[in-house]
Amino acid sequence: MMMKQKRPCNDAIQTSLLVLVRKLSDVLGVPISLQIGDPAFNIAQALVPARKAAEYLGVSQKTLANWRCSGTRGLQYVQVGSRILYRQNDLDDFILNSRKSSTSEKPAGRHG
């Protein structure tokens, strides 16, 4: 007699896909973001606190605060009460859009 195999729940599938995407990102050395509509997208997992965002970008939390106040760097953020959060997609886009091929290129922001 053949037993019916239990189907995994959506949360288990989402978690597995997130783990797979992160590992693929590490292997390729390129940030990979999940987009809204992807089966593995989960807004709660896609929001990063300012401390982690600063760590991810390699800058201080004070630098992020300065960027938020001046609005010069174009890095979007979410404010929930007093908490400052960043979408992982926005952090990845910020990194990709900050790429330069020459030191003579003008930096983005108020001086660029």
Rank of each mutant, 00 (worst) to 15 (best):
64 L>N: 04
27 V>Q: 11
49 P>F: 07
93 D>F: 01
102 S>P: 08
85 L>P: 01
44 A>D: 13
109 G>K: 08
34 L>G: 06
31 P>W: 03
17 L>M: 15
67 W>I: 02
73 R>L: 03
25 S>H: 10
109 G>M: 05
62 K>H: 11
22 R>M: 13
48 V>K: 00
87 R>Y: 08
111 H>D: 10
89 N>I: 09
104 S>N: 07
7 R>Q: 15
12 A>W: 12
18 L>Q: 15
107 P>M: 00
4 K>C: 09
1 M>K: 11
81 G>W: 02
37 G>I: 04
97 N>L: 11
90 D>E: 13
27 V>E: 10
30 V>D: 02
8 P>G: 12
111 H>F: 10
24 L>Y: 04
50 A>N: 07
6 K>W: 12
59 V>W: 01
25 S>C: 11
65 A>L: 11
10 N>I: 13
20 L>P: 04
32 I>Q: 09
70 S>T: 10
11 D>V: 15
54 A>K: 10
35 Q>T: 11
68 R>G: 02
69 C>F: 07
10 N>C: 07
50 A>L: 08
62 K>M: 06
71 G>S: 03
36 I>F: 01
95 I>R: 11
22 R>D: 14
109 G>N: 05
102 S>V: 05
33 S>K: 02
25 S>F: 07
104 S>P: 00
85 L>M: 12
102 S>A: 14
110 R>Y: 02
82 S>R: 14
64 L>Q: 05
67 W>F: 03
49 P>K: 05
32 I>D: 04
49 P>Q: 07
78 V>S: 06
108 A>E: 01
51 R>N: 13
57 L>G: 01
69 C>V: 02
38 D>V: 06
97 N>V: 03
108 A>K: 08
85 L>K: 02
23 K>G: 09
39 P>E: 07
82 S>M: 11
57 L>F: 12
78 V>L: 08
37 G>A: 03
1 M>H: 11
73 R>Y: 02
15 T>W: 03
38 D>Q: 07
105 E>N: 06
36 I>S: 01
36 I>Y: 03
16 S>D: 14
3 M>K: 15
30 V>I: 12
18 L>D: 09
38 D>E: 08
2 M>F: 15
105 E>Q: 14
107 P>S: 00
2 M>H: 15
92 D>Y: 11
28 L>F: 00
54 A>Y: 04
86 Y>N: 01
17 L>Q: 13
93 D>I: 05
26 D>K: 12
82 S>L: 09
83 R>V: 07
4 K>Q: 13
81 G>F: 01
33 S>Q: 08
1 M>A: 14
58 G>N: 06
60 S>T: 15
106 K>C: 08
1 M>Y: 07
89 N>P: 01
29 G>E: 00
10 N>G: 04
90 D>I: 04
27 V>H: 07
29 G>M: 00
87 R>E: 12
9 C>D: 15
23 K>S: 10
76 Q>T: 09
81 G>K: 04
90 D>A: 13
79 Q>Y: 01
58 G>P: 03
16 S>T: 14
75 L>I: 07
54 A>E: 08
41 F>D: 00
66 N>F: 05
9 C>Q: 12
3 M>S: 15
53 A>I: 00
96 L>R: 12
84 I>A: 06
102 S>W: 07
109 G>D: 05
41 F>G: 01
14 Q>I: 15
82 S>A: 10
